[in-house]
Design a protein around this nucleic acid. Sequence first.
RNA 1: GGUCCUGUGGCCGAGUGGCUAGGCAAAGCUCUGCAAAAGCUUCUACAGCAGUUCGAAUCUGCUCGGGACCUCCA
Length: 495
Amino acid sequence: MPLKVYNSYTRQKEVFHSITPGHVGMYVCGPTVSGESHLGHARPYITFDFIFRYLTYKGYKVRYVRNITDAGHFEEEGKEAEDKVGKKAILEKLEPMELVQKYTNLFHWAMLQFNCVEPSIEPTATGHIVEQINMIEKIITEGYAYEVNSSVYFDLKKYAATHDYGKLSGRVMDELLETTRELDGQQEKRDKADFALWKSAAPEHIMRWKSPWGEGFPGWHIECSAMATKYLGAEFDIHGGGMDLQFPHHESEIAQSTICNHHAPAKYWIHNNMITINGKKMGKSYNNVIKLTEMFSGNHPLLTQAFTPMTVRFFILQSHYRSPVDFSSEALQASEKALKRLWEAYEVLKKLQVGTSEKGTDVALETKVLQWINEFDDFMDDDFSTAKILANMFELAPVINGIKDGHIPANAITASTLVLLQQQFKIYLEDVFGLTQTTSGDDGALQGVMQLLIDIRKESKAKKDYATSDKIRNQLTSLGIELKDEKDGGMSWNR
RNA sequence: GGUCCUGUGGCCGAGUGGCUAGGCAAAGCUCUGCAAAAGCUUCUACAGCAGUUCGAAUCUGCUCGGGACCUCCA
């Protein structure tokens, strides 16, 4: 079954054919590092992480480019830094690159927590001013941009006359021309809908670069076009990002790149849906932003507890990436427990021994198990249906636990099926979904201490000295270590 | 106001016209010194109304509700 992806540009699922066989170029809009990453940011990066991982698993060599937007309009802690910065404020606190560094570091830290694979290239906007200027010059040469008062604007009306502007976002040009809004430089544009490619910098503007049109800074959309073109070429396979970027960001990217490169930039546009809180998109105006640091610490009024990065990752995997997902502490708690159950089943599965006898196979069970396993690839090929794969894994969990407990005979499924089951769980849980063990039990000394406690407890249990055995278990529980008596008389623990 | 999406059992969520996704919670049972875990069982829903169809959560229309985008936005 071939991989099918939903292409936002054509609004349908399409069979995925990479431009260069065996290779995939993927560009994903990265963060603006003017603030701390919040829960909403987690979704696109986790989504495109499992897409990247899956394409890699399918055998593609993927070049994954994700930019860092470190130029433009900056704020800190809700205060508009740039507009009101007098010289005093500049001296007192803000070196823009300090902010950029701080939030870039925080972003990288969060991505590490989520176990996201690092992109192949992570270019910064400020590192590509030259490329952006070159691109703007080309667009001017092509006749689709004009300079006014040291700023350069894209001539949207001219573009729209011969190109399908608005197709990606389902926008109609006439409507756009009617929108009224007060933006800086509005009166100097030929048309209200025209967007800036280069803006002349006011004297107090901190971040500024020399250009053929005077000192200024790049517009909001040109960086992605310039960097995508540089690292992935005029046409590449996948362009991704959040749905809210479709307009105007991605629409403008298409326009810029099409004029500059005489080719539409991306073959497939993939957009993830939003995370909402109580049905509302996360946003400063709603006062419902949960930063990732707050998420992991539980330090937020909307949170009843801390949630691990893996719980958040699992929570996102449980719904389809194109569906909106509503956040609540309750929903996260459910995910936390579900992940724990699934991961424990996986740990059990890893230790299951292949049976020696091929007799006694439960054909009905064997058939079902094989079907559930084989569907993993089918579901993923069907526009990355991660939720369905997890559902199948939960169907398989009782089988795995049943074999371990002895409810199901060890030879009920064939050895080859068991091996396949082990392989597929490993591939999907770890390699594709990027989940990792959240418990840390690899400490050698702790292992030894635990073994000692388990031995003591076994002895006291054998003597029916339950006071001692309960004391050990209760003390460990209060330390956050869970001790379980196994059916076979053994004991296992985790935390 | 315009464009688009959406409304699934107590909660979260998957759903390609027919074959009760799954998870969490809850209840009962089994196992167990007691727990925990695990296993088994129960809970069969698709906003409302009308239509198409042998058959609709799934298609169409209307009504009501929710959301996104139209402005920086993941």
